[in-house]
Structures are given as structure tokens and as C-alpha cells.
């Protein structure tokens, strides 16, 4: 009985997660390869990561280009360098 309750909670949480994916704002994970985009916002609660991306030149108003999609990573060009970022990070970069 108890177990069933808990399992239902887990299920509903999973479901919510799925829902939030649908209402996602345009971000780098859906970007077209070779097209330069202007970054609108870096949308993460991880302030450290945000600051770090800033020092690389990855912040609102800057240009970013997806060069290729490798394995589950995105190769992006920011300033004059290439970085490999994962999908989670690509999702935080709104364009």
C-alpha cells in the first residue's frame, strides 16, 4: 500500500519532468548547424557556471555557432575557440 503511494509520486514527478520539456524555450540544443545565433540568456541557477561561461565570452548578446553534434555533445564556436558542451548545458543557452 505504502509502496504504491510512493511509486505513484515517482511516476508523477517523472511525468512533470516530461511536461516541462515540451514548454522549453528556443535554446542551443535545437540550433541549426553552421548558423550563428545571438545568445538571449544563459538560463541556469548555477551562478558559478554562468560566471564561467561569461569568462569564455558566452553571454547574452554574443554570437554562438553550433559546429557539429558529436555523440551526445555539441561542438560550439564562441569567440575564437571550440568547446564541447553537453545537452544539458546546451539547453541553458537560450537563443
Amino acid at each position: 500500500m505504502e509502496l504504491a503511494v510512493v511509486n505513484n509520486i515517482i511516476k508523477s514527478r517523472y511525468h512533470n519532468k516530461k511536461l516541462s520539456l515540451v514548454s522549453e524555450r528556443p535554446n542551443l540544443s535545437e540550433a541549426v548547424i553552421n548558423v550563428p545565433y545571438i545568445i538571449k540568456e544563459v538560463n541556469t541557477t548555477d551562478q558559478n557556471m554562468k560566471d564561467f561561461l561569461f569568462t569564455l565570452g558566452c553571454y547574452e548578446g554574443e554570437t554562438v555557432t553550433v559546429i557539429s553534434v558529436l555523440a551526445d555533445n555539441y561542438v560550439i564556436s564562441v569567440k575564437d575557440a571550440r568547446y564541447s558542451i553537453d545537452k544539458d548545458l546546451a539547453r541553458t543557452i537560450l537563443v
Binding site: T44, D46, M49, F52, L53, N73, V75, A81, R82, Y83, S84, I85, D86, D88, L89, T92
Partner: peptide, 9 residues
């Protein structure tokens, strides 16, 4: 815990 991966190539 969410962890991002970024590495310069």
C-alpha cells in the same frame, strides 16, 4: 545533482 560538461577542444 545536475552537472554540466564543458571542455575546450
Amino acid at each position: 545533482a545536475k552537472s554540466y560538461f564543458i571542455m575546450e577542444l
